[in-house]
Write a protein that binds this DNA or RNA. Sequence first.
DNA 1: GTCAGATTGTAAGTATGCTGTCAATTAAGT
DNA 2: ACTTAATTGACAGCATACTTACAATCTGAC
Lengths: 169, 169
Amino acid sequence: MPSKPDSITMDAVYTAPGYLFRRMQQIAVAIFVEECRAFDLTPVQYAALVSIHTHPGIDATRLSAVIAFDRSTLGNVIERLESKAFIERKPGREDKRVKLLYLTKAGVATLREIMPSVENAQARMLQPLKAADRKVLLALMTQLVDLNNEASRVPLRAEDALEHLGKST
Amino acid sequence: MPSKPDSITMDAVYTAPGYLFRRMQQIAVAIFVEECRAFDLTPVQYAALVSIHTHPGIDATRLSAVIAFDRSTLGNVIERLESKAFIERKPGREDKRVKLLYLTKAGVATLREIMPSVENAQARMLQPLKAADRKVLLALMTQLVDLNNEASRVPLRAEDALEHLGKST
DNA sequence: GTCAGATTGTAAGTATGCTGTCAATTAAGT
DNA sequence: ACTTAATTGACAGCATACTTACAATCTGAC
């Protein structure tokens, strides 16, 4: 309980949950990039690819809700994926504002090829822990992220993914 | 175990530890910014202030090792803290390359005032969990970050903080 | 003492992640 | 039908976070 600055130590940083989350995120990205450096895909770009593969013809706004990425950020991500020829943007027929997203053949192929490396990376992040602890940590993180969903600037809305189908129902 | 893209679902994203860490980091920053919006300090800037307060006269390279921030990133952070008049940079006498960092009076005052808000923010991040689970999560995260230290691009080197003292020993 | 190599701060370039704003378009209310 | 609301993608701007490169400086080997 350091309340006066005179009593501030580095523990005010090191033991803060926010610092641990930041640090672990940095480590997770470093591991992902290292395992996947052959594929020219970042973690964010990978998540976007998976989502577009799962929801072909989704638009950028819905995609941002499905992976909880900021809409502005996602615009740049989509641009890069398009310039790498992993995805295509096609104008919507009903709604002239939207641009529908689809994987290209190269995108599908890359996704198939990168999968084992991604799984290696995800495993490596938790490897230092005992198997039982890994499960506990994953369960608690899943719970915490879910319960804090609304505190996020861009809450996850997985259901939004279905809106681009059967809109006329 | 989805190995063929045809069997990929969003679980390939949602249950990946890397995704959970990213999401939680975003939530943590959002909560910090909301609780501390009266102070014009980001989480990173706060950590830097605490470190400079704890290690007056530290230089930027050592500071980056102490809070595990990239040296380049930290350059910009320091610039912003200086332009806000929270810190001062003074040229080193022995080594003309380094610039030593000190808190200004405004920096010390701000640090004292922001402390309660930071603690509120840190508490809010874990609040959705039961008290016992909070302890477990914190312990596991601390362990995991520590054991993965070398996997990070900028490993934490807390001891480096002491080097700017008694260099001539 | 001098020269090779390391270190320090800085800068440019790329990639998230957020804040706003804006024009175009669509949807809703009357 | 017509005006107002909301939505969509795009853009500008700020703040991390990393890469490489570079000039100034320092250190060590000889």
